[in-house]
Amino acid sequence: MMPELSLNVLDIAENSVRAGATLTEIQVSVDTVADRLTITVSDNGCGMTEEQIEHVTDPFFTTRTTRKVGLGVPFFKMAAEITGGEFSIRSKPGEGTTTSAVFGLSNIDRMPLGDMAGTMSSLIGMNPDIDFIYSFERDGTGFKLDTREFREILGDDVSLSDPGVMTYIKSYIDENTEECGGTV
């Protein structure tokens, strides 16, 4: 079990990286009226066959050949389901994968969202050659970070893995999340 949902997101998004995605989009949406938190990770990676999707929530299924346990997806699924929420994966070979988890926002068993800024900063900085979009929305107000836009500003002079850039990304998300009503 992960102590905060942003760590699940980091782990799930690493699957997208390994699936060869060139663009991975992470959406966090908070709806206090419907009492729901929705987290979606979608990528344009290699995707999965129907058989793989069927098995992916089984802890004893993994695409790795080095060992036989894969806990990332089961952890994320469990974190959603214990809050009365739901979990789904849609995927097509060659097209990509979308993983979606819905949480009961005020449910006592819901883990805090946690440090999404830290998650995105590590994800982007450790995979500087591919693109990420992060969007956060809380009751209609939100913001978006798109590394393609950042890349344009930085040109060829600075990599997204530059420690200064990673620090900037972290504070960009923290400050903008605060402006949209804060985290959950």
Partner: peptide, 27 residues
């Protein structure tokens, strides 16, 4: 190490600390 095991054990703040120090000290 940033696999599920590393992340669950606290690798992200470790990584963040290295990045922050490298930035602060301009390494």
């Amino acid at each position: 190490g940033m696999a599920t095991c590393g992340i669950a054990a606290g690798a992200r703040p470790v990584l963040a600390a290295f990045v922050e120090e490298a930035d602060k000290r301009q390494l």
